[in-house]
């Protein structure tokens, strides 16, 4: 009887590929001092704008070339992963905790709680998010903390809306009534029955939002509102690379690829996780 088949889908390629890339980025971020071939801040005007290794004129050891100040691009990308991931993990996790909790509570208890939450969401939504974060950072000042706060402040909304919608769907199911009839408290049902149903969605969104946080951080760096300009960030590198694109394309292209792959990997990893851990085939 196929009804009784054990339930384990094979790990998908999507999960393997995105997971591998994220693992590489995480290892780079954690062990940057051991992996980076050079000091990411060391300038050397004699080594200015060296091309990547396969182009003639490349200097051995500077695999992805150097930027306008002679700094090693690969080393800067590796160190840039630190800031990108710190912001991604901290901001997306904070946004997830705040947004999911509010979404669960609003969707499950409804009533005045839901009214308040929905009103806040409406107001928040009326601001364009990136502009809002730029404005926030401009007001509370630049620096890693501000960036994290700004991203959290715009990202929790998405968790809140998605989780609230999912919770509303679940509360209409008969199993909620059955659990009530069996004597369980509302809080108990919220935690043990409703939350596990929202979890796959939350996990997928968390991963996606980490990717978005990486982009927002890059944008903030790009417009020079993130960390001090010396610290290597992908957004900052892209901004610098843009100005010398005609002489040294690699300064722009490699951090852009790192950014693109990381964002893609986060979203694909989230989708893959949901497919794998949601027991309901969607």
């Amino acid at each position: 009887m196929s009804e009784h088949a054990r339930h384990r889908r094979p790990v998908s390629w999507r999960l393997i590929l995105s997971g591998s890339w994220l693992a590489i980025v995480i290892i780079c971020a954690v062990f940057a001092p051991y992996i980076a071939p050079h000091d990411p801040l060391a300038q050397d005007l004699l080594l200015e704008r060296l091309p990547p290794f396969w182009v003639s004129g490349a200097e051995p050891g500077y695999y992805l070339g150097t930027d306008g100040l002679g700094r090693d691009v690969l080393s800067r990308i590796i160190y840039g992963a630190r800031i990108a991931l710190t912001v991604a993990f901290v901001a997306a996790t904070a946004a997830c905790l705040i947004g999911s909790t509010m979404g669960l509570v609003a969707g499950y208890f409804r009533g005045w709680l839901d009214q308040i939450v929905s009103r806040i969401v409406d107001i928040w939504m009326s601001f364009p998010p990136v502009l809002f974060s730029i404005l926030l950072v401009a007001v509370i000042g630049t620096g890693l903390h501000s960036v994290i706060i700004a991203i959290t402040a715009i990202d929790w909304i998405r968790f809140c809306r998605v989780v609230r919608a999912e919770t509303l769907v679940q509360t209409r199911m008969d199993y909620i009534d059955s659990a009530r009839a069996a004597g369980f408290s509302r809080l108990n049902i919220l935690v043990r029955e409703v939350f596990p149903n929202a979890l796959p969605t939350i996990v997928a969104l968390l991963s996606l939002e980490m990717g978005i946080a990486v982009i927002v951080e890059a944008i903030l760096s790009f417009v020079n509102l993130s960390i001090s300009t010396d610290d290597p960030t992908w957004g900052g590198m892209i901004a610098e690379g843009r100005t010398i694109i005609h002489f040294a394309w690699w300064v722009l292209v490699f951090p852009l690829i790192a950014l693109f792959l990381t964002v893609l990997a986060f979203s694909q990893f989230g989708e893959g996780l949901r497919d794998r851990f949601d027991p309901v085939l969607r």
């Binding site: 199911m173 008969d174 199993y175 309901v280």
Partner: peptide
């Protein structure tokens, strides 16, 4: 003292448990 047998067995069991 009491228990309910609901109408729709599709939604009366929690899908993720």
């Amino acid at each position: 003292t009491s228990a309910l047998i609901p109408q729709d067995p599709l939604t009366a069991l929690n899908p993720v448990r």
